[in-house]
Amino acid sequence: MNLFAKARDWLTAQLEEAAGEPITYTRGNQTFALTAVVGQTLVSESEEGPARVAVSERDYLIAAAGFPFATPAIGDVIGQTVGGVPLVFSIQSTDSGDPAWRYSDQTRAMWLIHVKRKKGP
Protein backbone atom coordinates (compact mmCIF):
# COMPACT_ATOMS: atom_id res chain seq x y z
CA MET A 1 0.00 0.00 0.00
CA ASN A 2 1.50 3.35 -1.02
CA LEU A 3 1.51 6.52 1.05
CA PHE A 4 -1.47 8.01 -0.80
CA ALA A 5 -3.61 4.91 -0.16
CA LYS A 6 -2.67 4.98 3.53
CA ALA A 7 -3.65 8.65 3.74
CA ARG A 8 -6.94 7.98 1.94
CA ASP A 9 -7.82 5.19 4.36
CA TRP A 10 -6.88 7.35 7.34
CA LEU A 11 -9.00 10.28 6.09
CA THR A 12 -11.99 7.99 5.47
CA ALA A 13 -11.71 6.66 9.03
CA GLN A 14 -11.42 10.21 10.43
CA LEU A 15 -14.52 11.34 8.52
CA GLU A 16 -16.53 8.38 9.83
CA GLU A 17 -15.33 9.01 13.39
CA ALA A 18 -16.02 12.76 13.33
CA ALA A 19 -19.29 12.87 11.37
CA GLY A 20 -20.50 9.28 11.15
CA GLU A 21 -23.97 8.20 12.21
CA PRO A 22 -25.09 4.63 12.95
CA ILE A 23 -27.39 3.20 10.29
CA THR A 24 -28.76 -0.15 9.23
CA TYR A 25 -28.41 -1.29 5.63
CA THR A 26 -30.88 -3.91 4.45
CA ARG A 27 -31.09 -5.98 1.28
CA GLY A 28 -33.75 -8.68 1.30
CA ASN A 29 -33.51 -10.44 4.65
CA GLN A 30 -29.91 -9.37 5.34
CA THR A 31 -29.34 -6.37 7.63
CA PHE A 32 -25.96 -4.87 8.54
CA ALA A 33 -25.02 -2.18 11.06
CA LEU A 34 -22.82 0.43 9.36
CA THR A 35 -21.53 3.94 9.91
CA ALA A 36 -22.45 6.59 7.35
CA VAL A 37 -21.96 10.31 6.92
CA VAL A 38 -25.28 12.02 6.18
CA GLY A 39 -25.33 14.64 3.45
CA GLN A 40 -27.62 16.19 0.90
CA THR A 41 -27.65 17.01 -2.78
CA LEU A 42 -29.30 20.13 -4.17
CA VAL A 43 -31.66 18.93 -6.91
CA SER A 44 -33.51 22.10 -7.87
CA GLU A 45 -33.60 25.77 -7.12
CA SER A 46 -35.97 28.53 -8.15
CA GLU A 47 -36.53 32.18 -7.42
CA GLU A 48 -39.93 33.80 -7.28
CA GLY A 49 -39.70 37.47 -6.35
CA PRO A 50 -37.75 37.85 -3.11
CA ALA A 51 -38.14 34.17 -2.21
CA ARG A 52 -35.70 31.46 -3.18
CA VAL A 53 -36.76 27.83 -2.97
CA ALA A 54 -34.16 25.07 -2.84
CA VAL A 55 -35.04 21.38 -2.88
CA SER A 56 -32.51 18.84 -1.68
CA GLU A 57 -32.42 15.09 -1.23
CA ARG A 58 -30.70 13.05 1.47
CA ASP A 59 -27.44 11.23 0.74
CA TYR A 60 -25.27 8.82 2.64
CA LEU A 61 -21.51 8.44 2.33
CA ILE A 62 -20.47 4.89 3.25
CA ALA A 63 -16.94 3.51 3.19
CA ALA A 64 -16.57 1.06 0.31
CA ALA A 65 -14.11 -1.06 2.29
CA GLY A 66 -16.70 -1.94 4.92
CA PHE A 67 -19.64 -2.27 2.56
CA PRO A 68 -21.29 -5.72 2.74
CA PHE A 69 -22.08 -6.03 -1.01
CA ALA A 70 -20.21 -5.45 -4.26
CA THR A 71 -22.38 -2.38 -4.96
CA PRO A 72 -25.48 -0.71 -3.53
CA ALA A 73 -28.74 -1.56 -5.29
CA ILE A 74 -31.91 0.38 -6.05
CA GLY A 75 -34.52 -0.67 -3.51
CA ASP A 76 -32.05 -1.45 -0.73
CA VAL A 77 -33.13 0.16 2.54
CA ILE A 78 -31.27 2.38 4.99
CA GLY A 79 -32.64 2.85 8.48
CA GLN A 80 -31.59 5.65 10.80
CA THR A 81 -32.93 7.10 14.04
CA VAL A 82 -33.09 10.89 13.81
CA GLY A 83 -34.11 12.87 16.90
CA GLY A 84 -35.44 9.69 18.51
CA VAL A 85 -37.62 8.89 15.51
CA PRO A 86 -36.80 5.78 13.43
CA LEU A 87 -36.76 6.69 9.72
CA VAL A 88 -36.54 4.40 6.70
CA PHE A 89 -35.08 5.40 3.33
CA SER A 90 -35.03 3.57 0.01
CA ILE A 91 -32.11 3.83 -2.39
CA GLN A 92 -33.29 5.57 -5.57
CA SER A 93 -32.06 7.82 -8.34
CA THR A 94 -32.57 11.53 -7.77
CA ASP A 95 -35.39 13.46 -9.42
CA SER A 96 -32.73 15.30 -11.42
CA GLY A 97 -31.57 12.03 -12.97
CA ASP A 98 -28.39 11.37 -11.00
CA PRO A 99 -27.72 7.66 -10.53
CA ALA A 100 -28.81 6.11 -7.23
CA TRP A 101 -25.17 5.59 -6.23
CA ARG A 102 -21.65 6.23 -7.37
CA TYR A 103 -18.21 6.43 -5.88
CA SER A 104 -17.72 9.81 -4.22
CA ASP A 105 -14.07 10.10 -5.21
CA GLN A 106 -11.68 8.86 -7.86
CA THR A 107 -9.97 6.48 -5.43
CA ARG A 108 -13.30 4.69 -4.82
CA ALA A 109 -12.95 4.95 -1.04
CA MET A 110 -16.60 5.86 -0.38
CA TRP A 111 -20.00 5.30 -1.93
CA LEU A 112 -22.32 8.28 -2.37
CA ILE A 113 -25.84 6.85 -2.07
CA HIS A 114 -29.02 8.83 -2.83
CA VAL A 115 -32.19 7.94 -0.93
CA LYS A 116 -35.81 8.93 -0.53
CA ARG A 117 -37.82 8.53 2.64
CA LYS A 118 -40.26 5.65 2.59
CA LYS A 119 -43.82 6.57 3.47
CA GLY A 120 -45.84 4.64 6.03
CA PRO A 121 -44.76 1.77 8.28
Rank of each mutant, 00 (worst) to 15 (best):
G20N: 07
E21G: 00
E21H: 04
E21M: 05
P22F: 11
P22L: 10
P22A: 06
T24C: 03
Y25H: 07
Y25T: 01
T26C: 05
T26R: 14
T26G: 04
R27S: 14
R27A: 11
R27N: 04
R27F: 10
R27D: 03
N29K: 11
N29A: 07
T31F: 13
F32H: 10
F32E: 01
F32W: 11
F32T: 00
F32R: 01
A33W: 06
A33P: 00
A33F: 13
A33H: 03
L34P: 05
L34E: 06
T35W: 15
A36E: 03
V37K: 04
V37P: 00
V37C: 07
V37M: 05
V38T: 08
V38K: 08
G39W: 09
Q40Y: 04
Q40C: 00
Q40M: 03
Q40I: 00
Q40W: 10
Q40K: 09
Q40N: 11
Q40G: 07
L42Y: 08
L42M: 09
L42G: 02
L42V: 15
V43C: 00
S44D: 05
E45H: 07
S46P: 07
E47S: 13
E47R: 15
E48S: 13
E48L: 13
E48M: 14
G49D: 04
G49M: 15
P50Q: 07
P50D: 03
P50Y: 04
P50W: 06
A51Y: 03
A51R: 03
A51L: 07
A51I: 12
R52E: 01
R52G: 05
R52M: 08
V53F: 13
V53N: 05
A54T: 15
V55Y: 11
V55E: 11
V55I: 10
V55S: 02
S56K: 13
E57W: 08
E57N: 09
R58M: 05
R58E: 11
R58V: 10
R58D: 13
D59W: 02
Y60M: 02
Y60T: 02
L61N: 05
L61S: 08
I62Q: 06
I62N: 03
I62T: 06
A63W: 14
A63G: 10
A64M: 06
A64T: 14
A65D: 12
A65M: 06
A65V: 14
A65P: 02
F67M: 00
P68T: 12
P68Q: 10
P68F: 15
P68L: 12
T71F: 09
T71S: 11
P72N: 10
P72L: 12
P72T: 10
A73K: 15
A73R: 15
I74P: 00
I74W: 08
I74A: 06
I74F: 02
G75D: 09
D76V: 12
D76K: 09
V77H: 05
V77A: 02
I78L: 14
G79F: 04
G79L: 05
G79D: 01
T81I: 14
T81G: 03
T81E: 15
T81A: 10
V82T: 13
V82L: 07
G83K: 00
G84T: 10
G84D: 04
G84L: 12
